[in-house]
Design a protein around this nucleic acid. Structure first.
Length: 322
DNA sequence: AATTAAATCAACCGCCACAAT
DNA sequence: GATTGTGGCGGTTGATTTAAT
C-alpha cells in the first residue's frame, strides 16, 4: 500500500545544506536531542523534510564522526564484514563507531568493490564483490531490522554459526599481516593521525568559519570540503547518544528507551552503539578495535553462545545481523 | 591552458519494520 | 486485530572535484 511521502513535496527545500541550516539543526538537536525528527522542521523553521534533517544529522553533524581516509584496519574490517553480512551497512557501521553507514557504503562502492574485483581478476576468490558472502540480494537479509523469513530458532542457530564465522573473519581482518589475501592490493596504510574527527561544536565553528570567510560559505560543499580537510582538530570523542551535554537528553529520544542500555536500545543500536564503543573505550578507532580484539582473542570460549552474544552486543546488536 | 573522463561524496528516493492509535 | 505514521535502511543519483589527455 503506497504510503504518502514523509513530507509535503511543496515548499520543501532540497539539495546541499547551507551552513545556516546546519546551524539551525545543530542548535536544535543540542537543545532537544536527536529524535522526533518530524518536529524538527516545524520547530526550527527549516524548510527541510524530517528525513533530510535526520540524515544530515546522522551522516554529517552528529558528534564523533570520523571523516577522511579509511585506515588499513578499517578497510579490512569492512571487507570482511561485508563478506560476512552483505550490504548491511548499518550493521557494518556499528563495528566502526566513527563511520556512518553512508560513508562506509560510499567507500565500499567507490574503493573496495573495485579493489576486490581487481584482486579477483588477479586470481583471488574472496567471496564475490557485490553482496558477496552475506546476502547478495541486498535487502533480502534482515540487517538493521529486516528479518528473514526464517523461523526464530533457525536464525538463532544461524546467528551462532555466523558469530563463529565473524570471529574468524575479524581475526583475519585485524591481523595486519600481508599474508592476508587483501593485503596484496591494499594501499599504503593511512597514518593514524591523518583521520579527521568532527564534533558538532566543531562543526559549528567550522561552519561559521567557512561561512564568515569571504567566498567561503557557499552551500554545503564549500565549508564541508574545507572542513573535512581542515578539521585537524581530532577532538575528543563524545558519546553520541547520551554524551555531549545537550545531547544527553537524546538518550531517551526514541520513545523513552532506557538510556543506560544504550547498546541495546533500538535507536542506539546503530548510532549509540557506535558511540558506545568509542565513547566507553575512550577515543578513536583504536579502542573500538581493541575491544574487538579482546573479544576475538578471548578464545576461552567458555562462553555459551548466549554469553557470546551478550559480549557482542556492545559492539553492535547481533539482532541486526539477521 | 582547456577539455574530457573518472572518481568521490552528499543527498534523495522508495521500501520496510515497528510503534502508536 | 487493523490501520496509520515515523524512523531507519539500502540503493541510486546528481553535483562537484580531481586526474588525465
Amino acid at each position: 500500500m503506497g504510503r504518502p511521502p514523509c513530507c509535503d513535496k511543496v515548499g520543501v527545500k532540497k539539495g546541499p545544506w547551507t551552513p545556516e541550516e546546519d546551524l539551525m539543526l545543530v542548535s536544535y538537536v543540542q537543545e532537544h536531542g536527536p529524535g522526533n525528527w518530524r518536529a524538527v522542521p516545524t520547530n526550527t523553521g527549516l524548510m527541510r523534510c524530517s528525513k533530510s534533517c535526520r540524515l544530515r544529522w546522522t551522516n554529517y553533524l552528529r558528534p564523533g564522526i570520523k571523516r577522511g581516509n579509511f585506515t588499513d584496519q578499517e578497510e579490512k574490517l569492512i571487507i570482511h564484514l561485508q563478506a560476512l553480512l552483505g550490504n548491511r551497512w548499518a550493521a557494518i557501521a556499528s563495528y566502526l563507531p566513527e563511520r556512518t553507514d553512508n560513508d562506509i557504503k560510499n567507500y565500499w562502492n567507490t574503493h573496495l568493490k573495485k579493489k576486490l574485483k581487481k584482486m579477483q581478476a588477479g586470481g583471488e576468490g574472496d567471496g564475490g564483490d557485490d553482496g558477496g558472502g552475506g546476502d547478495a540480494g541486498g535487502r533480502t537479509g534482515a540487517g538493521g531490522g529486516k528479518r528473514p523469513a526464517v523461523p526464530k530458532g533457525q536464525w538463532e542457530r544461524r546467528l551462532q554459526t555466523d558469530i563463529h564465522t565473524a570471529r574468524q573473519a575479524l581475526r583475519d581482518a585485524l591481523s595486519l599481516e600481508p599474508s592476508a589475501p587483501q593485503a596484496k592490493a591494499a594501499p599504503p596504510p593511512t597514518p593514524p593521525g591523518s583521520a579527521t574527527y568532527a564534533s558538532s561544536a566543531e562543526n559549528i565553528a567550522r561552519l561559521l568559519e567557512g561561512w564568515l570567510r569571504p567566498g567561503g560559505g557557499s552551500g554545503g560543499k564549500g565549508p564541508e570540503a574545507s572542513g573535512s580537510t581542515s578539521t585537524t582538530a581530532t577532538t575528543q570523542q563524545r558519546p553520541q547518544c547520551s554524551g555531549e551535554g545537550a545531547a544527553s537528553a537524546s538518550a531517551s529520544h526514541s520513545g523513552g528507551a532506557a538510556a543506560n542500555t544504550a547498546a541495546h536500545t533500538p535507536e542506539c543500536s546503530t548510532e549509540t552503539s557506535k558511540m558506545a564503543s568509542s565513547g566507553a573505550a575512550g577515543a578513536g578507532a583504536a579502542p573500538a578495535f581493541s575491544m574487538l580484539e579482546s573479544w576475538l582473542l578471548d578464545d576461552g570460549m567458555g562462553h555459551s553462545e548466549v554469553e557470546l552474544m551478550a559480549d557482542v552486543v556492545p559492539l553492535g546488536d547481533p539482532s541486526e545481523f539477521f
